[in-house]
Amino acid sequence: MKKTAYILFLLLLTFLAACSSNDDTSNSSEKETAKASASEASDEEGGVKVDKNLLSVEVSLPASFFEGQSAEDVIADAKEEGIEVTANDDGSYTYKMSKSEHKKLMDEMSAELDKSTAEMVSSGDYPSIKDISYNKDFSAFTMVVDKEAYENSMDGFASLGLGMSGMMYQLFNGADPDEYSITISIEDEASGEVIGETVYPDAMEDVE
């Protein structure tokens, strides 16, 4: 499961690389007008840490996100995408980007979540799923399903995609990894009854 999270992170790096080429001009202007730190949001040691400074944002990902990956590979993958990365003594890695890049990243992740949830309903890949709704910060999703069709299918795997996407959004937005959670509720279309619930990241720990 953690390797899946790493793959998702690499996809995010691709977006960051695209942003960096468009922000060079604005970044130089920012550097001329500001020099000091403005604010900081961080978690306990070993988790994801997001430091928001006046000029840049640093995202530190824990070692658990990179199981099976050597430091050389992690750094090389990031540098291929033009991203500044530092390996830390505790096995975590810190990625540095401008504030504008971070904002674009969060906006892009939000747009991609909007798009992917809509496609889950409309694509026909998950025929038992009739609707998906979610809150603003992607910490809670509700999948409305045809109960009988859902229970006799593999459509439950859709909740994994929602959970992983919600987790990545929360973590990159500065959520405390010791306290955050993503709740996926399954609601029967006919009765309105909640017939199942999955909470991430607890669900990932249960299968390790």
Results as ranks from 00 to 15, higher is better:
Met1Leu: 11
Lys3Leu: 12
Leu8Trp: 09
Leu8Lys: 10
Leu10Asn: 11
Leu11Tyr: 12
Leu12Gly: 11
Leu13Trp: 02
Thr14Gln: 13
Thr14Asn: 14
Phe15Val: 13
Leu16Glu: 03
Ala17Leu: 06
Asn22Pro: 00
Asp23Ile: 11
Asp23Gly: 02
Ser26Cys: 10
Ser28Ala: 15
Ser28Gly: 05
Glu30Arg: 13
Glu30Met: 13
Glu30Gln: 08
Glu30Val: 12
Lys31Leu: 12
Lys31Trp: 05
Thr33Gly: 11
Ala34Ile: 12
Ser37Leu: 09
Ser37Glu: 13
Ser39Glu: 06
Glu40Ile: 12
Ser42Thr: 14
Glu44Ser: 15
Val50Met: 06
Val50His: 00
Ser56Met: 07
Ser56Gln: 12
Val57Pro: 04
Glu58Ser: 15
Val59Gly: 01
Ser60Met: 10
Ser64Tyr: 14
Phe65Tyr: 14
Phe66Met: 02
Gly68Trp: 01
Gln69Arg: 10
Ala71Gln: 15
Glu72Leu: 07
Glu72Ala: 12
Asp73Gly: 00
Asp73Arg: 06
Val74Arg: 01
Ala76Asn: 10
Asp77His: 08
Glu80Gly: 13
Glu81Gly: 04
Gly82Met: 02
Ile83His: 00
Glu84Asn: 12
Glu84Asp: 12
Val85Asn: 00
Thr86Met: 07
Ala87Gln: 10
Gly91Phe: 04
Met97Trp: 06
Met97Ser: 06
Ser98Phe: 03
Glu101Ala: 14
Lys103Cys: 00
Lys103Asn: 11
Lys104Pro: 09
Leu105His: 02
Leu105Gln: 06
Met106Asp: 07
Asp107Ala: 11
Asp107Phe: 03
Asp114Met: 09
Lys115Gln: 12
Thr117Phe: 01
Thr117His: 01
Met120Asp: 07
Met120Thr: 13
Val121Leu: 01
Ser122Ile: 05
Ser123Trp: 03
Asp125Pro: 07
Asp125Ala: 14
Ile129Ser: 03
Lys130Gly: 03
Ile132Lys: 02
Ser133Gln: 09
Asn135Cys: 00
Lys136Met: 09
Ser139Cys: 01
Thr142Tyr: 02
Val145Glu: 03
Lys147Arg: 15
Glu148Tyr: 09
Glu148Gly: 04
Ala149Gly: 05
Glu151Trp: 03
Asn152Cys: 05
Met154Gly: 08
Ser159Leu: 14
Leu162Thr: 05
Leu162Tyr: 02
Gly163Arg: 05
Gly163Ser: 02
Met164Ser: 09
Met164Val: 15
Met164Asn: 12
Ser165Ala: 13
Gly166Glu: 05
Leu171Met: 10
Gly174Lys: 01
Ala175Ile: 03
Pro177His: 06
Thr183Asp: 07
Ser185Leu: 09
Glu187Tyr: 03
Glu187Asn: 08
Asp188His: 06
Ala190Val: 09
Ser191Ala: 02
Val194Ala: 04
Val194Cys: 00
Ile195Leu: 03
Ile195Ser: 02
Tyr200His: 03
Asp202Phe: 07
Ala203Pro: 07
Ala203Asp: 14
Met204Pro: 00
Glu205Trp: 10
Asp206Phe: 13
